[in-house]
Amino acid sequence: MTVGLQHYLVVSAALAALGIIAMVSRRNAINILMGIELLLNAAALNFVAFSRFGAGRPGLPHFEGQVFGIFVIVLAAAEAAIALAIIIAIFHHRSNINADELQSMRR
């Protein structure tokens, strides 16, 4: 069986499911951030897979999917930078970063 679009989509679905499990079950804020990164990677993989296989003019490459993949990567970089700044700020205040203990925005 040759590898087609659906194989990539199933891999991406598995990545997304693992990311959701990490986001929901993990306690440490950095682990939650890793789950979000997995989820974003799954989305970008979908974009790129569709840009290679998607229905359009046959034989002509489409690059829109790859452009959106780049946007996803840039957004992930921005999100990681700001999230880690917030995590470190919280760590300075409370000396732990367990998400289930962060129930107030004040000290």
């Binding site: 087609g4 229905a55 046959p58």
Partner: peptide, 14 residues
């Protein structure tokens, strides 16, 4: 994903 009949021919690499 598996319930859809996806186009199978990949585009040319460039």
């Amino acid at each position: 994903v598996l319930g859809v009949d996806w186009p199978q021919a990949p585009r040319d690499m460039q």
